[in-house]
Amino acid sequence: MRLPVEELIKRYKNNLYAAAFNICKNASDAEDVVQDTFVQYYSSNKQFETEQHIRAWLIRVAINKAKNVAKSFWRNHNVPYEDYMETLAFDSPESQDLFETVMKLPAKYRIAIHLYYYEDYAIREIADILKISESNVKVRLSRGRKLLKETLKEAWEDDE
């Protein structure tokens, strides 16, 4: 099964961007990752079983590309995500605080939380995408939630 790239861009561009931004913490890098992901799909002759398989493949490629960008030498010369935060629009101050807190998590927890809560992947699917065991995904989600809870609780207590 192959779908036209234009159709995939319409459906998954924002999802891939969110996953890439989650890792890169930089808008231009995330945009490059999304573009490179679709170019790789277009260039490949890979056949997929279902549209879900295509979506999972795109997310996996985007995550890998974003990790490579985050490790690159040129990464040190980009604008930090804190400066980019000013350009993002949030529904409420609470959603901005939550976003900032999630972005401060270690990458392994941040990625698992993003895939689970923002992309609605099941634990089994996240394990396949990240090439880790299901129990490891559960541990990462649990530890990520714990860190979020502690951080948000401290911030809430400081406000009182």
Rank of each mutant, 00 (worst) to 15 (best):
I9E: 12
E49K: 13
K131R: 15
V33R: 11
N76G: 08
L8K: 03
D158P: 15
L58V: 08
W156G: 13
E51P: 06
A89V: 14
Q96E: 12
K146T: 08
K67H: 04
N22D: 04
S142Y: 04
D159Y: 07
S44E: 10
P93Y: 06
E7K: 06
S142I: 03
S95V: 03
F48H: 05
D120N: 15
E82Y: 07
R75V: 08
A107L: 11
S95R: 02
L16N: 08
E160I: 14
A20E: 00
E134A: 05
Q40R: 12
F48L: 00
K146N: 14
I9M: 14
Q96A: 12
V102Y: 01
F99V: 11
S135F: 13
R60F: 02
R110Y: 02
K104P: 05
Q52I: 10
K108S: 09
L148K: 11
I129V: 07
Y118L: 15
P80N: 01
V33M: 09
D36Y: 05
W57F: 02
H114I: 02
A70I: 04
E94A: 13
N22I: 04
L141K: 02
R140K: 12
V5G: 15
S92P: 11
E150G: 07
E134Y: 06
N76H: 06
V79E: 08
N14T: 09
L16R: 05
I111V: 05
D91A: 06
E125C: 04
K13Y: 14
Y117G: 10
G144W: 00
Q40K: 11
N64R: 01
Y81T: 01
Y17C: 03
S135N: 14
N14Y: 15
S92V: 12
S43L: 12
Q52H: 09
L8G: 03
R55I: 00
